[in-house]
Design a protein around this nucleic acid. Structure first.
Length: 469
RNA sequence: GGUCCGUUGGUGAAGGGGUCAACACACUUGGUUCUCAUCCAAGCAUUCAGGGGUUCGAACCCCCUACGGACUACCA
């Protein structure tokens, strides 16, 4: 069987939105599942939409996500160039050839002119030659044969049939000499040996037109895999226009690349078992028969859960490393690895870290009611007693990195005084943070901030409580 | 308006004529726990947009209706 070749063909018009990335992922997976080639082609035929730096962004994101292409503008193969604006002579040549083949014709109509059927179809060769000689601006349009059924088989949507009478003579080559997507896509896919076309299903209804072009040239049609859209909600596609999250936005919010990629793989495709899959595992498991037809709604909540799963899979050291940039607000000399240990099971988005660790350098406002906890059976009053009771032991304790030892010391203290553990632990945790909840308990916080800071805060809490009772 | 496509729970989805409609997220409840999380356990669609058929039997096949989306650009 022939080696599969797929292509990801974005327009450099902005940034990478999630639907786009998912298309790239599927193109990649479909090719790589069968050891095929994955090609990157830049479709910059609309000069008006050209955005500075957009192409570089595409390279960067594909690299970051590990969707490595075998050929592309910056990785030339045998069928370049891989940027459409650099292939203008090719399109012109093929468009003219298509005219001689009867699949296209010159059109001299004004841009806005609306015609039932293009009158230029009926121009005699002499009339065309005359217009051309007088430098009349023209486009080349596809000549759609009347009264035919154009059909093809899509691997996701099945057999599609349309009557050619419902198709119109689309522009293939614009008056500025650039091809339209309708044409460039076919010529390039053929010339670049793309035999599996993977793209959004918005192209489903125009695919018969493209096949007519393949047929006119006598080229072999590719396999088609049209993908269902990724939606923001029931009615709206995910788009950057509404400020919907792009890949970069998600990264900026502290979602991990692997988690994003894993999650979007599930938007329109279902694995047979486990959902947490690395790129390598996706490559092995990805089969087109499990791609669905219906639109998928992007669910940030599930992505968040998945991101948490990826965070928890890391070693503490790895987590500490990715979390470091978010530790800026920790200005005291805290044990960051210990902080990471406490955070790792609780963090879902890295961007949430700062507010989870703010108390480490800046404890909250003193509030006696924080010491009141029903299940712990604590009140401001008995908390003050508990803190006074604990202080000497905390001062006497030497090794603040010994979590187990410190915890047993506290538990013994509770036991000796006939108290529940919480009567001792809760007041200490509150005294060290002034927060209703923290990532980590009394022992862990003491470890994080160290002995000196711990004693200081305990004393502060005692005097605050005394002043308020 | 025309053409094409879609419709299983709040979300992603499995399911391809034959007992109770997988699984995951979310949610609820319980357990573990020094708070919050993590972790563990259980619950959560009498029903597959609606209506007709075909069949001994339909989420799965056929038809119609409704709703949604895409295309209908010298955008891709």
């Amino acid at each position: 069987m022939k080696k599969i070749r797929t292509r990801f063909a974005p327009s450099p018009t902005g940034y990478m939105h999630i639907g786009n990335l998912r298309t790239a992922l599927y193109c990649y997976l479909i090719a790589k599942h069968d050891d095929g080639d994955f090609i990157l082609r830049i479709e910059d035929t609309d000069q008006n939409r050209e955005v500075e730096g957009a192409t570089q962004l595409i390279y960067d994101i594909l690299e970051e996500t590990g969707l490595e292409y075998d050929e592309g503008p910056d990785k030339p193969g045998d069928v370049g160039p891989y940027v459409q604006s650099q292939r203008l002579p090719i399109y012109k040549e093929y468009a003219e050839k298509l005219i001689t083949l009867g699949g296209a014709h010159y059109c001299f109509c004004e841009k806005s002119e609306e015609n039932e059927v293009d009158p230029c179809r009926n121009l005699t060769p002499e009339q065309v030659a005359e217009k051309l000689a007088s430098n009349t601006p023209y486009v080349i349009r596809q000549t759609i044969p009347a009264g035919h059924i154009a059909d093809f088989d899509d691997e996701i949507y099945g057999h599609i049939e349309v009557e050619t009478d419902t198709l119109d003579d689309a522009v293939l080559l614009k008056s500025d000499g650039y091809p339209t997507y309708n044409f460039a896509n076919v010529v390039d896919d053929h010339l670049m040996g793309i035999n599996v076309v993977v793209r959004g299903n918005e192209y489903l209804s125009s695919t018969p037109k493209y096949n007519l072009i393949y047929d006119a040239y006598g080229w072999e049609r590719p396999r088609y895999i049209h993908l269902p859209p990724v939606m923001k909600d029931e009615h709206h596609k995910l788009s950057k226009r509404n400020g919907d999250a792009s890949f970069q936005d998600l990264r900026a919010q502290g979602y991990l690349t692997e988690a994003i990629l894993n999650y979007i793989a599930l938007l329109g495709w279902a694995p047979e078992g486990e959902e947490i899959l690395s790129l390598e595992e996706l490559k092995q498991q990805f089969t087109t028969n499990r791609i669905s037809k219906a639109p998928a709604i992007f669910d940030i909540v599930k992505l968040q859960w998945m991101n948490g799963m990826y965070i928890r899979k890391m070693t503490v050291e790895e987590f500490c490393e990715v979390a470091k940039p978010y530790y800026d607000c920790i200005t005291i000399d805290a044990d960051l690895l210990e902080v990471s240990k406490a955070l790792q099971p609780r963090v879902e988005r890295l961007i949430d870290i700062p507010e989870m660790v703010d108390y480490i350098s800046h404890p909250g406002e003193f509030d006696p009611q924080l010491y009141r906890h029903k299940r712990m059976k604590t009140t401001p009053e008995n908390s003050l007693e508990a803190l006074k009771l604990s202080l000497p032991h905390m001062e006497a304790w030497e090794d603040y990195t010994d979590d187990d030892g410190m915890m047993h010391m506290m538990m013994d203290l509770a036991k000796e005084n006939g108290l529940k553990n919480g009567r001792i632990m809760w007041p200490i945790r509150v005294a060290l943070s002034n927060k209703a909840s923290t990532a980590g308990g009394a022992v862990e916080i003491a470890h994080m901030i160290g002995k000196e800071e711990t004693i200081k805060r305990l004393k502060q809490a005692i005097s605050d409580l005394e002043a308020n009772l």
